[in-house]
Amino acid sequence: MCTMIVQQVTIAGSGKGREGWFAVKQANVSYDHPFHAPFEHALNIDFVDEAQGPGARVAVELSAEAARSLVQTIQAVLGEAEAGGHI
């Protein structure tokens, strides 16, 4: 926990974890040490359902550059869907 930079956001959707799909209720977004990505710090997102315990987690660990690119892409896709009347 060397940066302690973390925020939580309530979300709705599904994630596929070790034991299959489950409803994700919260996303925990941190910029701290990753477990696997080969960086000192990474933008970590854990999609979780805390009520189901620590194992109900879908994790990604991204470089800061990749995370910014992902944010832009998500915004672009949502914008396109909105423009097309899908949202």
Partner: peptide, 8 residues
């Protein structure tokens, strides 16, 4: 998974 819970 436990450490991620604590991190959050």
């Amino acid at each position: 998974d436990v450490a991620a819970t604590v991190r959050a």
